[in-house]
């Protein structure tokens, strides 16, 4: 494999990791409440600014910042669920969808008011910028951190949903709501846990995103959020494994699109992603790993 292709592959895996981290939350939440959380992408922004705020104090080590970002994301997710989703349960699905759209508007514009629309430079430790040589290619250390931490989080999540009582309850709730209630599963608490975990992942993606791309503003969450949804659709909405798979496929496809076509087409990058969405919906609406599911209010 030539250096160029290896480089592209690593770029794709890096981008795919970020999409996968966001997509996981989308899918977990969709799987349980059958609702697309529009504000999910904005948690990326919340995570990025939390990181920036904590890092600029210079008081905390990076592992503590990462932990606090996860906690902030979880708390934000829980708040969104309490304010805009739980009260709408039982209402038509569209109502919940509009409510999350409104939350997204509040977060984005609230961000603009509090933080201004000026992009800010993101500080990451110098060591992250150093280059690491892998075979013929050389990559930024931060890319490896992104890929590695995503894999770590995925493994932890897998252990959680397979091996713990709460994880089992989550899967049970996604599989059959009535039966889950009859088993005595506390539906409210389980939904809250799904929001907390999914949102923590998205906020953590914000930390990584800021570190990789160097600049953040209050609207950075929108496009990655929407793309992560596309990743979910590719993998099959509602399936966590599908979200991860879809994230990596989309990341690789996007990098290939930009890297392998003549440069005049690279401006069409985002159009390509969403055209993919419409194409996937047309050809295989259940995605790669999804299965047709019943409606749930």
């Amino acid at each position: 494999m030539s250096a160029y292709y290896l480089q592209q592959l690593l770029n794709g895996l890096m981008l795919g990791s970020l999409y996968a981290l966001i997509a996981i939350g989308f899918s977990m939440i969709y799987g349980i409440v059958r609702l697309i959380n529009f504000a999910h992408g904005d948690l990326l922004m919340v995570g990025a600014f939390t990181t920036l705020g904590l890092a600029s104090t210079g008081l905390l080590p990076w592992w503590a910042i990462a932990l606090l970002v996860l906690v902030t994301g979880a708390l934000s997710g829980i708040t969104i669920e309490r304010v805009a989703i739980r009260p709408m349960r039982g209402a038509p699905q569209v109502t919940g969808f509009i409510a999350t759209l409104a939350v997204s508007v509040v977060i984005e514009n609230g961000g603009l008011i509090l933080l201004s629309g000026q992009p800010r430079t993101f500080l990451f430790p110098e060591i992250m910028r150093s280059r690491v040589t892998i075979g013929p290619a050389s990559v930024a250390a931060v890319d490896l951190v992104i890929i590695g931490s995503t894999l770590l989080l995925c493994v932890l999540l897998l252990l959680f949903v397979r091996g713990t009582r709460m994880g089992r309850a989550m899967r049970a709730l996604a599989d059959n709501l009535l039966a889950a209630r009859l088993m005595g599963i506390d539906v409210d608490r389980t939904i809250m846990a799904a929001f907390a975990i999914g949102s923590a992942f998205a906020a953590f993606a914000g930390l990584l995103w800021g570190g990789r791309f160097g600049q953040i503003d209050p609207l950075i969450g929108f496009a990655p959020g929407l793309k992560a949804f596309v990743a979910c659709v590719i993998g099959g909405v509602g399936s966590i494994g599908g979200a991860v798979l879809g994230g990596y496929l989309l990341g690789l496809a996007e990098v290939m699109f930009v890297g392998m076509l003549p440069p005049i087409y690279s401006g069409y990058r985002d159009a390509f992603v969403f055209a993919t969405l419409i194409l996937v919906l047309l050809l295989m609406p259940n995605g790669l790993l999804g299965r047709p599911e019943e409606d749930r209010a």
């Binding site: 609702l35 697309i36 699905q93 569209v94 969808f97 496009a223 929407l226 949804f229 596309v230 659709v233 985002d270 159009a271 992603v273 969403f274 055209a275 969405l277 419409i278 194409l279 919906l281 047309l282 609406p285 409606d295």
Partner: peptide, 20 residues
């Protein structure tokens, strides 16, 4: 492409359309 599917796919597809 989208209207045979459940409602929220239309929302996301039309949002994508704005970007496209």
């Amino acid at each position: 492409a989208v209207l045979r599917l459940k409602g929220h796919y239309l929302a996301v597809a039309t949002l994508g359309l704005i970007v496209i």
